[in-house]
Amino acid sequence: MQDFLFYFLSALTLISGLMVPVSKNPVNGAMYMILCLIGTAGLFALLGSYFMAALQVLVYAGAIMVLFIFIIMLINAPAETKRKRDIPSLIAAAIAFLMLTVGFVMMAMSPELNQPMPALEDAETLAAEGAIPFDGSAKSYGFGLYGKYMLPIQVMGFLLLAAMVGVIHLSKDLHARSQAMLKVKENASE
């Protein structure tokens, strides 16, 4: 059953992932992206990280992709109808894709990775010393994040502040009203 779930979710993720750069309409691309994220969340759940799966659906698919869809709808850009075949960049993209895939397949053939996933019940005993043992509960996430990684969490706070300040600055044009009034004046004087 686990094998079947893995193959199904991987196929879902990869195929919808492939449709994101390929689809002509950005809205379709966004929908495929959401499907891909849900597939990834399924893979997270299969790997025993239930908290991460929930986080992925809530934050990534639920907030980030919704923001994307808002912006795509707001911009209302027409789908690319006639795109002249840009051969050089197609070749460059294809070469990059092939090189990366070949690299990953070569890495996947190394023997130390070709073992099945260990059982979760052995987490306490099999983990190395000094490591935080793998545990699906939210409590261990809390202990890990706010115990060991307290400093990066606080720095993340400032990163989000910088991003927020930047977004507000970029979106808010204080003189929009006076510019609009200027345009009316120009039109009236013509």
């Binding site: 990684y149 400032f158 910088a162 930047g166 600055h169």
Partner: peptide
């Protein structure tokens, strides 16, 4: 982790400053 978080704060801060 500190390395990554610091580097990303620099990078995202610069996105904002470049497009300012």
């Amino acid at each position: 982790v500190t390395f990554f978080v610091a580097l990303e704060t620099i990078t995202i801060g610069f996105y904002v400053l470049v497009a300012y």
